[in-house]
Design a protein around this nucleic acid. Structure first.
Length: 807
DNA sequence: ATGCACGTACTTTTT
DNA sequence: GTACGTGCAT
């Protein structure tokens, strides 16, 4: 569980007896299965190739490791950390190892336990967000951050933006909350304050966003809340603004290691730089070819520029692949080598060529799905594969429906990964919101979330009044509600409702003071609010699920309690190797557990699986979720123009080479997940979002060496071979014969062109001022509407109800 | 204040 | 196709 699990690890491990001194050296080549108490004295260089060994042995100073897919990255990284500890005698507590996901952090910690024993728990290891949160809880006071801050997730942030839009009377159609939040997030990731943004506004739109950003920050602070981006940004601000904090923290870690470095944003990099400024022992590991999160602020340029930023950096390339057959690697390389913005490199393997990749075309998505099921069954018959050996990778979640149907029909178990996350379910978020209010009464977002859930007759108008009263008196809404003298801003029956809410809150606050377990507190909440009855009255099918989710949540909370209570309270405020600072850290007296619990649920969405849930099944997931995983057999489905590469990268508003290159990396990530065999599948006709369109096979298929592809189904017809080299696509077409969906015989022609007159039911008549090159699902037009106050709008032709008008 | 009906919009999702 | 949000009626 993120920072908390890191912390718990430290706490729990400290309870265990120290490692036996004088225990026998043990040499092992297989994963170690024994007790975690004895350090394993295996040779840390054993079984590593030359560049890997070099990476492990590298001494002081910056180190950049380009670690290709399947090149033994985690292995190298963990061995390096172990080497630092065992050979170079670096105290574990003075090593910082940062990952992007909790899963990666857990995995690394487990592996390190095998290499160095229990002292692994003392390494600062976790996600950027968790590490920054921890730093801010400890030292945030230097820059005025309350140690009891709560963390807003995206949902909380969106609610806050909506509130602000409503207050500011800004049309949320012109300023969609998600978009605004995206702009704010971009700014934060690039360490730009509201003032910075205001100073450089380019137009009226940005001016409004900058104002909203300022408001948003103001409201976050008033709620004693930090959003995800703030955790990074404020940690940077802390290190920049406070010499004392900077002094301490840059002294604290002697070695810093960053995983998935291709995905860092500026804030993250800056944070690392500040921490590493003294010793410059910064080791970064990544693969520019696997950077697929640019849309979330990741900046590949940082890894590409690392050698310029640290001119003395040693650069190591891990290009030997231990996962895939040479054919798979060749196909992958054929694709990725078309990217211009990358470091030249090429994976190779000792494993033999293996079988060809299969390219199969079908008529539509449901045929595509049933063909895949058949292949799964065939392969299972021919060789003894488990279902878990198969993965179906898609570009968008919307592709999953036909698969669910086909697998259901064929009675082959199918597991959908990463669809909806546990802590994001409404019922869970409601309960968490109750906890948040109890932990931090300033959290108005949490309060408004639960103020009328379950329904207790408090509606929008009342909430507005309370909110106004709160802000006018500079207090929290919770305060206003709890204070009888101020709550009478509302009149009539609402006053009674507020009175009973007051009683509820008071009672829960008492419970929070008395209850020593999270489960106990949650049970009180559920009981006093009648939450289960509320769930049950809703609808039968869903309410069963939701009730079960609540039970699961209680179980997770109980597990948390059990872990925490296995540990004397005193250890909570004292971490190993840590001078006073920790003791002084303002940990809450009343609710230490609550704070830890809340942090773990917002920073770590991964919920521990109940045992027995690991039944054998085929996995279906997006390419994004597949990063870092591997499967013997991989199906890349929906290999079509408009899906992979996605329409938005191809024909969308900001389509461009960068976007196309990211799609290509996505394709590359997909291919390199496979150990033995890849099936590339497409459908000539696809229904997406209720609309059926003709499709073209993906241009990326043309980038794979043709002799590696075994064609079947429609692919035998050679539909893809007519196409020119797809790299022509990156540049403007040189001549008329170059393939282009807009001009290709079978692609959907665009419905509108520049200069066309059209009509929209709500905006009225307008003139097309610019338009996408192609037709089909990605077609868009920019329309200048004639009516006053509407202005120009970009519209997706597939979705907007546009009618052509004769001029 | 709540419930229903219609219209509308639509990638990816580590934290 | 469906989920969500707005607007209207109760």
């Amino acid at each position: 569980m993120g920072a908390i699990s890191a912390l718990l690890h430290e706490i729990i491990k400290d309870q265990q007896p120290p490692a036996q001194s004088g225990s026998k050296p043990v040499w092992r080549t297989t994963p170690w299965q024994g007790s975690t108490l004895a350090p394993i004295l295996m040779d840390l260089l054993e079984g590593l190739n030359a560049p890997q060994q070099e990476a492990v042995k590298h001494g002081d100073g910056p180190l950049l490791i380009f670690a290709g897919a399947g090149s033994g990255k985690t292995r190298t990284l963990t061995r390096r950390v172990a080497h630092l500890i065992r050979e170079r005698r670096v105290l574990p507590s003075r090593i910082l190892a940062v990952t992007f996901t909790n899963k990666a952090a857990r995995e690394m910690r487990e592996r390190l336990e095998q290499l160095v024993g229990p002292q692994a728990s003392r390494i600062w290891m976790g996600t950027f967000h968790a590490m920054c949160a921890q730093m801010l809880r400890i030292s945030g006071h230097y820059i005025g951050i309350d140690a009891r801050f709560v963390i807003f997730d995206t949902d909380d942030s969106t609610r806050l933006i909506k509130d602000i839009l409503r207050e500011e009377n800004i049309d949320s159609d012109r300023y969609p909350p998600g978009r605004v939040l995206g702009r704010i997030s971009d700014a934060k990731n690039n360490l730009r304050s509201p003032d910075d943004m205001t100073g450089t506004v380019k137009g009226p739109y940005e001016r409004v966003v900058a104002r909203l950003y300022a408001k948003y920050q103001e409201r976050l602070r008033a709620s004693r809340a930090l959003d995800f981006d703030d955790l990074l940004g404020e940690a940077v601000r802390l290190l920049e603004a406070s010499a004392e904090a900077r002094e301490y923290w840059s002294e604290r870690f002697l070695h810093i290691l960053i995983d998935e470095f291709q995905d860092v944003n500026l804030a993250q990099f800056r944070w690392v730089q500040l921490l590493a400024q003294k010793h410059r022992n910064i080791c970064v590991v990544g693969d520019d070819d696997q950077s697929i999160y640019a849309w979330r602020g990741a900046n590949v340029k940082i890894i590409l520029d690392f050698e310029n930023t640290y001119t003395d950096a040693q650069v190591i390339r891990l290009e030997q692949n231990y996962r895939s057959t040479q054919n798979i690697l060749d196909a992958a390389h054929g694709v990725i080598s078309n990217n211009l913005g990358r470091k030249p490199k090429q994976l190779w393997t000792d494993i033999d060529a293996g079988v060809n990749l299969t390219l199969h075309g079908t008529t539509n998505a449901s045929e595509e799905a049933s063909w895949v099921v058949q292949q799964v069954r065939r392969l299972q018959r021919e060789r003894d594969y488990n279902l878990a050996d198969f993965a179906i990778l898609c570009r968008v979640n919307a592709q999953s429906r036909p698969y669910e149907e086909a697998f259901m029909q064929a009675r082959v178990p199918l597991k959908l990964v990463g669809t909806q996350r546990f802590y994001e379910r409404k019922e869970i978020k409601d309960l968490i919101a109750y906890l948040k209010v109890l932990y931090n009464p300033y959290d108005n977002i949490a309060l408004t979330r639960i103020i009328n859930v379950p329904a207790r007759g408090i509606g929008g108008v009342t909430i507005q009044k309370l909110d106004l009263a709160a802000r006018e008196s500079g207090r929290s809404m919770c305060d206003v509600i709890l204070d009888e003298s101020t709550a009478d801003v509302v009149g009539g029956t609402a006053r009674l409702k507020i009175a009973s809410l007051r009683k509820l809150l008071q009672s829960l606050q008492n419970a929070a003071g008395e209850e020593v377990t999270i489960v106990g507190l949650l049970q009180k909440i559920i009981e006093e609010t009648g939450y289960l009855q509320y769930l049950q009255q809703e609808r039968t099918t869903e309410s069963i699920d939701r009730t079960a989710n609540v039970q699961e949540f209680l179980a997770a909370a109980a597990l948390f309690d059990a872990r925490l209570q296995a540990v004397p309270e005193a250890t909570l405020s004292t971490l190993p190797e840590q001078p006073e600072e920790y003791g002084e850290a303002q940990r809450d007296e009343q609710a230490p557990f609550l704070g830890l619990f809340l942090e773990s649920v917002t920073l770590d969405s991964e919920v521990e699986k109940a045992p027995g849930e690991n039944s054998d099944a085929v996995t279906l997931m997006t390419l994004h979720s597949a990063k870092g995983l591997e499967f013997p057999i991989v199906f890349l489905v929906g290999m079509e123009q408009g899906l992979l590469p996605h329409a938005r990268a191809l024909w969308g508003e900001q389509a461009g080479a960068d976007q196309l290159e990211e799609e290509r990396r996505l394709c590359y990530v997909g291919l390199t997940r496979a150990r033995e065999q890849v099936f590339l599948v497409y459908a000539s006709q696809r229904t997406l979002y209720g609309r059926t369109e003709w499709t073209q096979p993906s241009q990326f298929l043309d980038e794979m060496p043709g002799q590696l592809l075994q064609r079947s189904g429609h692919a035998k017809l050679g539909a893809t071979s007519a196409r020119q080299s797809a790299s022509d696509w990156d540049k403007p077409a040189a001549n008329g014969s170059t393939f282009k969906p807009a001009t290709s015989a079978s692609a959907t022609p665009p419905k509108f062109g520049v200069g066309d007159r059209l009509k929209h039911p709500s905006f009225g008549e307008g003139l097309v001022v610019s338009a996408s090159a192609g037709g089909g699902p990605g077609e868009w037009v920019e329309v200048a509407f004639l009516a006053e106050g509407i202005g120009k709008k970009k519209l997706a032709v597939a979705y907007a109800p546009l009618e052509k008008v004769a001029d």
